[in-house]
Design a protein around this nucleic acid. Sequence first.
DNA 1: TTATCTATCGAAAACGGTTTCGTAAATAAA
DNA 2: TTTATTTACGAAACCGTTTTCGATAGATAA
Lengths: 334, 334
Amino acid sequence: MPSVTLKMIAKELSLSVATVSKALANSYEISEGTKAIVLEAARKMGYIANPYASSLRKRRSKTVAVVIPEIADSFFAKVINGIEEVALSYGYHVLIYMTHESLSREQAIMQDFRSGRVDGILMSVSEETDTVEHITAVMDSNVPVVFFDRVREELPTTCVITNDFESSYAATEHLISKSCQKIAFVGNSPTLAINRNRESGYKSALKEHNISYENVLICGNDPKSDYKILSSLFKSDGRPDGVILSVEKLIPLLYQVCHDLKVEIPSQLKVLTFTNFAMAEFLNPPLTTINQPAYDIGKVAAQTLFKKLARSNHIAEAESIVLPSEIIFRESSN
Amino acid sequence: MPSVTLKMIAKELSLSVATVSKALANSYEISEGTKAIVLEAARKMGYIANPYASSLRKRRSKTVAVVIPEIADSFFAKVINGIEEVALSYGYHVLIYMTHESLSREQAIMQDFRSGRVDGILMSVSEETDTVEHITAVMDSNVPVVFFDRVREELPTTCVITNDFESSYAATEHLISKSCQKIAFVGNSPTLAINRNRESGYKSALKEHNISYENVLICGNDPKSDYKILSSLFKSDGRPDGVILSVEKLIPLLYQVCHDLKVEIPSQLKVLTFTNFAMAEFLNPPLTTINQPAYDIGKVAAQTLFKKLARSNHIAEAESIVLPSEIIFRESSN
DNA sequence: TTATCTATCGAAAACGGTTTCGTAAATAAA
DNA sequence: TTTATTTACGAAACCGTTTTCGATAGATAA
């Protein structure tokens, strides 16, 4: 509750509310003298504008939303850091929403955004998302959306991604060069473009090297069933000698499985992961990782969004900004 | 921009705006018949209330703020998950702000909250925070604050913390039981209560066991200088045989230092850390950790805040909710 | 001298809801 | 039948800004 309002300042200075408002907005209509007087009074009285009154009238909220699955892993944490950094510099506020990989939650969240609550949206879709109506609906109501990481490239907007296909291709080739012959790929959702790109990078590399063994696993959200899926991998006959993890969350699980089944990394199994966290080097064994530039993805996505916000009539067309990932070779794939 | 407003529905149904508003709010003043008609029309027309108009009039934003240093480590990520979960169930929105350990940023953020932007605040103070005027100012303007993790216990509100003193005491005793004689403690900020509690737990245990060696290091935000501080520790004469890390962020750094200086864990140095992340078990060597119940801390803090919000005249008194941490013994301290 | 600017300010209408208060009709109480 | 009460709704004020549109006085141009 804003104790001091424009009206109070106006009364105090025997000016009109309009004049005070304009003075604080540094309008050309107001003389430098009164501006100084108003500014001083506002400061002294501790005036802080009511953002809701302001947003209502200006039809702009100075707020953006970040919609993500969750902040379980380090990737989204760093992305948010990047976003917040940029938002701050633009004087924007950041609302955060988690879908917990649920389409219905995502739909409810997006529905709310048609109210004008936010001026723009930064989002990474859930695993379940197999329709985009809830997204196009808010885009149609003139709220720009910028995707990052988990994108929907078919929509007419900007996607900030990494070179997933290439990274995955290179990762697969790397394992092949280490004489792996049976390489498995573990992803999460077949509907996610990011996952499909990685998968096809993996498959292309196999094809290129005439390797017929191909094994794509889908792990979900439940650690228990994921554990089963992963462990069954090593109990089967076509036991792999290399694994590419597409999901950071599965790292501890894979290490656990290998530990429990006494599968030795890297002698019996070479491992390589898409991830983004500092401790990979100090794991046992040190983990080869494909590092996504998470912080920069957040920054670039936010900057792109603010550019769209600046231009009232931005052209809505599909576009991809690709930030390269970096493979860091460590013992787990040696 | 909300394309369809109350006025439009009113006109469509030849009702007054007031009636429509009350009908949607399920007011007793409106007959069930008209309620049904209004609800149906609102649904069909795709009405979504403008939150800014609503907040302006109701003087409630249905929004809470989370103010934290940053989401660099897993702790705050999990806390936010817990907070978001609770906020969602209350129909609240979550604004997120990072101080980046800067007091002036924290002050600017809190200053803004005197505008009525948020109904309540969940916060973990920055390392630099050595004054609380900016916090009491918003509390005085009737915006409740609940602290978690990095708290200021002198303020008349609720703090959600873990049993830092006891955990640190137990951790120190554990190292002593492993026949460590020279145990160092690495904290971040001497102004933070959480750090002081851990430090005194450490010191009390030493005193209790008549150990005179006492070594408290302060590491800041800069990895380079932190590296120097940590490495100088092992170059000095009074080289420790045990270390307690109070800060998760320093784990990779410590492992790096030990690696570079060829200090072997745990034979030459036993290590133990306050942290909260799943991979500790798979580090080399597996790291003994004091796990904070991060997710629960977020949940409890949020629930406490919403309780305060529910009661308009909540009594403002200092109170601590202590959630116990859990020590998980692993090889690094064996 | 008169007409035209220019600079500076205020009245009032938005923005889109919520809430108070009044009122007419229907019902209950006397 | 008269009076009191309840039910169901609308008119209008209000939340605190922003913005449009005048209005006025003084300066300038014709």
